[in-house]
Design a protein around this nucleic acid. Structure first.
Lengths: 345, 345
DNA sequence: CTGAAAGCGCTTACAG
DNA sequence: CTGAAAGCGCTTACAG
């Protein structure tokens, strides 16, 4: 493909015997152009199939109208919905999205951030990877004066805009609900404790136990249960205990909860009568399993829109009005069959 | 946020008393710089926290190292995986992805394409929306000398690179399998016939019937079954017939197949003994339903990688070697419980 | 190996 | 309302 030269404002200017300045003005719908010539320019642009070169325009204007998004995985329901939500809101404002996935790798996350900085994006939206303990790269974003919005998994110590879920409260409600249903030995599949949200979920779990004066039993708390397979493995371990739990809160994810359900079925534990199960995230499939799985909805699409709108607000404000720096969205406990011990299946 | 000025190559040049040319050369690892000064420049760049301005660089070089992707929906498993696959392959080559979703709207698709053209992306990857009958906007991409790769839902008449699935073959195999299992009245939930892939799937269905000398019964073919709800609606209609079908091929999507399953369960049709069900796409949930749903896997992540690599090949080739313009990936029939009439549930 | 200069395509103060 | 000119930050032929 030989890159045939595209039409520029010079081509239009030449053809009409006006200056590029006027063409630019017309194209930007400025008032400082004669109405007649403006129309003529617009018409000619159309004829010559003119397309503005956004790179040039942005370079000159010192902005990019682009938002960078870094997520652990694009092809995970929760993140896909976040992105769809952001896209939905930014699209209307003429913004573009550059998407990067960290694949939960610290190294790739750093590299993604650098790419986005080089691209001069106006804003970077990120949910940090599990591997990321160090946040120099995020500090770097701030140093470059790029707006930074963290969501879901956030680096607490960095003072940035944040859109989060109240994980602690949601987890508390989930476990509280299970206790109310009559479960007495509730196990926890927990996420990596270097990540904020997983610490919070554990807190909620502990809080609910405390409220009901239920002792914390260490052997009922299992680490490293991230995937379906790991969730299954943890469950096998739990259900083989001399005194197995009568409920499992897969606080790390619905995928993990799915592993729980499969092992439970396999080992002939009746759900929910012998074993209650609660997951996290309200993945589509939780509604479809049998029994359906109780879980926590995070309103991901809405969260995406919120993130985008937060950015636009911050831009408009220009430091005149103070905007809240942290928006917490209350997730919702979705009670399904897998924890309905009382009311029967 | 007052945009504090970023470090440019001029700042580095000034500090070291060399010209911007040399700085640029050093930064691009050119051989035409003294090794010592190169090292010095690199070190200083680091110190001053220099970040290249990709916009400026690209403008000058007349490329963007950016690929635009337009899909109907980001938050649909199939497309999310395609995107993840593309990202995985392009990332390694230092390319960025700009993502747009058409939301199945023609208008938004056109607008997305225009944005991408303005951004001077090097390549546009698209799966057209259901609404898109007109393909002027795609022709426009070609006219601007931008590489265009269509995938999945393609505009046949446009001579572009294409990565597709052999929908006809896969559908044939699915229906053939159902017939082998002993189903005799197989209904079809079909997709919009203005879209290529849905026409092909119908063809495969008809072909399988023909092979086994089974007559085509018009009332067993239902249009407009896109979503779970519409699939359910179509199924209710089918199962209420005086002579209802004994199997339903939800060729349009797994979501539709899910609707079929729910209505069947509701109306007390035993699956698979009284009613066989086959979907399309191998969405995660098809493995989890009870019974699990037979479906067709399209290798979406792999398709994404293929798309990206096709682009890179085409770039390298530079018209010297001829590359195949259409890559067809053979999907795989995943046989699960919902069609296992013979071998029992 | 290095510098001076032009230019990628646009926008915008400045002057009239 | 219009033009001439400078400049966004970089790269790259050209000359030495």
């Amino acid at each position: 493909m030989k890159p045939k030269k595209r039409t520029t404002i010079y081509d239009i200017a030449q053809k009409l015997n006006v200056t590029p300045s006027s063409v630019s003005r017309a194209l930007n719908n400025s008032n400082y152009v004669n109405e007649a010539t403006k129309k003529l320019i617009l018409k000619t642009a159309e004829e010559l199939n003119y397309k503005r070169n956004t790179m040039a325009s942005n370079l000159r204007k010192g902005q990019s109208k682009t938002i960078g998004v870094v997520v652990p995985r694009i092809n995970q329901n929760y993140f896909a919905n976040i992105i769809a939500g952001i896209e939905d809101a930014t699209y209307k404002q003429g913004y573009n999205l550059i998407i990067c996935q960290s694949n939960e790798s610290y190294e790739k996350e750093v590299q993604s951030i650098n790419t986005l900085i080089n691209q001069h994006v106006d804003c970077i939206v990120i949910s940090v990877s599990i591997e990321s303990n160090n946040h120099k790269h995020l500090q770097n974003v701030l140093d470059q004066n790029i707006q930074l919005i963290q969501f879901d998994r956030v680096a607490d110590e960095l003072e940035t805009l944040k859109v989060i879920n109240d994980n602690e409260q949601a987890s508390f409600e989930a476990v509280d609900h299970m206790i109310e249903q009559g479960y007495k030995r509730i196990a926890l599949l927990e996420g990596p404790q270097n990540v904020d949200i997983f610490r919070q979920r554990k807190k909620g779990y502990l809080q609910a136990l405390a409220k009901h004066n239920i002792p914390v039993i260490d052997e009922l708390i299992v680490e490293n249960t991230w995937t379906k397979e790991l969730g299954a493995k943890g469950t096998r371990q739990l259900l083989s205990l001399p005194e197995p739990p009568d409920a499992i809160f897969a606080s790390v994810s619905d995928f993990s909860a799915l592993g729980v359900l499969e092992v439970a079925t396999d080992m002939n534990f009746k759900v929910p009568s012998q074993l209650g199960i609660c997951g996290y995230s309200n993945e589509d499939f939780t509604e479809i399993t049998s029994p359906s799985i109780t879980t926590i909805d995070q309103f991901s699409f809405y969260m995406g829109k919120t993130i985008a709108n937060l950015y636009f607000q911050e831009m408009e404000n220009n430091d005149t009005v103070v905007v809240p720096k942290i928006i917490s969205i209350k997730p919702k406990l979705i009670i399904r069959s897998s924890t309905m011990k009382k009311k029967g299946k």
